[in-house]
Every structure is written in structure tokens, then in C-alpha cells.
């Protein structure tokens, strides 16, 4: 486990090129097929931090699960370093919103799990797990069971566990969605720190605009269902990122831009429920404007 070693980490940045091409995914239901994601291309360069944001139900998690190998694309391909993704593997580490730590394993045993699956011997993986836990400031909790930890700690263990196998890509599915605002900010800082040290490709799904800007090199904005890429926004903010940057004019400009993109799509996503026609019955004076403008 030399992934903590920065020298060799620099060498690994050539790995982890994620390429999603002509991607679409639909489910079969009784009413026919239901298209979740359509005609989507995304890519993550080695060592790049890329976020996907979009209104809820736009299929961003579906896309991430396809990259993880849990879902098969209906059309198109998902490749990592030119290799077709056929199923889940330790090459693509994943962090889930629901923490998903094994409750019957201690913190250290959780972190060791991937290495154990690879057949690494006990003393070696113990040492590696300790080092990684130290990196996340969790050394003191190695013998605790997960139910004794706070949400933020659990998610740190989740990230460390996913990193412990030395994956090419780290996939995160709204990992901080269940945390309170203060903890979330700290976790974002921890994640960027770890990412900067390990130089690993990251694909991050969120619906939090600030989070996406603060963390990413690039942000994909998705449309309402069926999801596709509406815009691709580079984030030219310098690194390392500081909390204070969130007040800078550059940050706020990016935020405004993304806000309006998302807002449009969120309204579209809600379109079935509120329409101009539906509002007429409520006797609301729209004065000739469309509902979207009024809202």
C-alpha cells in the first residue's frame, strides 16, 4: 500500500480515465420503457475532480451506478482506461449516502475489508489501514463499532475504506447529503485534502451547487428527466481551495450561473404538477406572463 506515498501517487495520475459515450439507460415497466438517462457523454481525466449536479430524479445517480458497474447501459459504453466496465470492482471505489459501513466490523476492519478481499495478509493490511485512518484523523476510533460514530466520522471511514484498495476512480453518490451543514463543510475540506494527496480521479454526484463548485475542477449540469448533459462548466478556482473563496466574486459568479441552469431544470422537473392551465383555476393573475417567469 504505497498510495499514501506522494511520489508514487504522482505516477498513478496517468490512471483513472473515465469515458462515458452515447450513454442511455431505460427501465422496463408495465407502461413500457422508461428512459432515465439519454444521450449522455461525460469523461473524467486522470486525477481530475468532476461533479455531476442536476434536479432530483434526473438520473445522476443512475449514471454513477452505471460507472460503478451496478447498472448496464441500454446503449453506449462506459470505459475506464479503455477497459469496458462489466460489473462492480475494487478498481472503482464507491461511497454511498447511507454510509454503508458494516455494523459488525470495527472501524479498522471496515477499512481493511477491500484489502482482505484482495488476499493481503493481516499484518500488512493492519498497517495500511492504520495509516489511512491516521490520514483521516480516525486513528483513535479504530476499535470502535460504527454505531458509536457520528455521521461525519462514519462517512470519513466510508471514504477511507473506498480508498484503501487503491482504486483508479472514486465515485461518490451524494456522500454528505445526510450531514448537517457545518459537518458537510468540514467533510468537503477533508475530501479535497485527501484527493490532493492521492491524486485520484473523482466523480462526485450532488445536488448542492456550492459543494460542486468548491470541490470540482469541472461540473456537469444535467437536465430534468430523461437526464442528459445540459452544460459542462469548468471551475477555474485555484487550489488548494479555502473556505474563504466561497465569498469571492469568481465563486459567486459561478454559483449564479449554475443556479439559473438548475432552476430551469428543476422547474421543468416539477412541470407536471404546476402548469399555467392548472393555475388558472386558482384565480391567480398572471398578467400575461408565463408561470415560469412569475415563479
Amino acid at each position: 500500500m504505497n498510495l499514501i506515498d506522494t511520489k508514487s501517487a504522482a505516477a498513478t495520475t496517468t490512471k483513472g480515465h473515465v469515458d462515458v459515450k452515447n450513454f442511455s439507460l431505460s427501465y422496463e415497466t408495465i407502461d413500457g420503457s422508461f428512459e432515465a438517462v439519454t444521450d449522455t457523454q461525460i469523461h473524467v481525466k486522470p486525477g481530475e475532480f468532476v461533479s455531476i449536479i442536476g434536479p432530483s430524479g434526473c438520473g445522476k445517480s443512475t449514471l454513477l451506478n452505471a460507472v460503478a458497474g451496478f447498472l448496464k447501459p441500454t446503449t453506449g459504453t462506459v470505459t475506464v482506461d479503455g477497459e469496458l466496465v462489466k460489473g462492480p470492482s475494487a478498481e472503482r471505489g464507491m461511497v454511498f449516502q447511507q454510509y454503508s459501513l458494516f455494523p459488525w466490523k470495527t472501524v479498522r476492519e471496515n477499512v481493511e475489508f477491500g484489502m482482505k478481499m484482495r488476499g493481503m495478509d493481516r499484518s500488512q493490511r493492519e498497517r495500511a489501514a492504520r495509516t489511512l485512518l491516521g490520514l483521516a484523523g480516525l486513528e483513535a476510533f479504530e476499535k470502535h463499532y460504527p454505531d458509536r460514530l457520528s455521521g461525519g466520522m462514519k462517512q470519513r471511514v466510508g471514504i477511507v475504506r473506498a480508498l484503501a484498495t487503491g482504486p483508479k476512480v472514486l465515485l461518490l453518490d451524494e456522500p454528505f447529503g445526510a450531514l448537517d451543514a457545518q459537518t458537510r463543510v468540514i467533510m468537503q475540506q477533508i475530501l479535497t485534502n485527501m484527493w490532493q494527496r492521492l491524486k485520484i480521479s473523482v466523480l462526485f454526484v450532488t445536488h448542492d451547487i456550492d459543494e460542486a463548485i468548491f470541490l470540482s475542477d469541472r461540473v456537469y449540469c444535467m437536465t430534468a428527466r430523461p437526464g442528459s448533459i445540459k452544460a459542462e462548466i469548468p471551475i477555474p478556482l485555484e487550489r488548494p481551495r479555502q473556505q474563504s473563496m466561497m465569498m469571492s466574486s469568481e465563486f459567486l459568479a459561478l454559483r449564479r450561473g449554475l443556479m439559473s441552469l438548475i432552476r430551469e431544470e428543476s422547474l421543468k422537473a416539477m412541470g407536471g404538477e404546476i402548469t399555467d392551465l392548472g393555475m388558472q383555476g386558482l384565480n391567480i393573475e398572471l398578467q400575461g406572463q408565463s408561470l415560469a417567469d412569475v415563479l
Binding site: 460503478a68 451496478f70 460489473g87 462492480p88 470492482s89 475494487a90 472503482r92 471505489g93 464507491m94 454511498f96 447511507q98 454503508s100 458494516f102 475489508f113 477491500g114 478481499m117 484482495r118 475504506r161 473506498a162 484498495t165
Partner: peptide
């Protein structure tokens, strides 16, 4: 919990 099964798969189990 199916998420735990997925997590294990992602870790190479």
C-alpha cells in the same frame, strides 16, 4: 441492507 452488499461488491468481494 442491499447497500451493504453493493459496498462489498465495490470493494472486490
Amino acid at each position: 441492507d442491499p447497500v451493504l452488499v453493493r459496498a462489498a461488491r465495490c470493494l472486490g468481494a
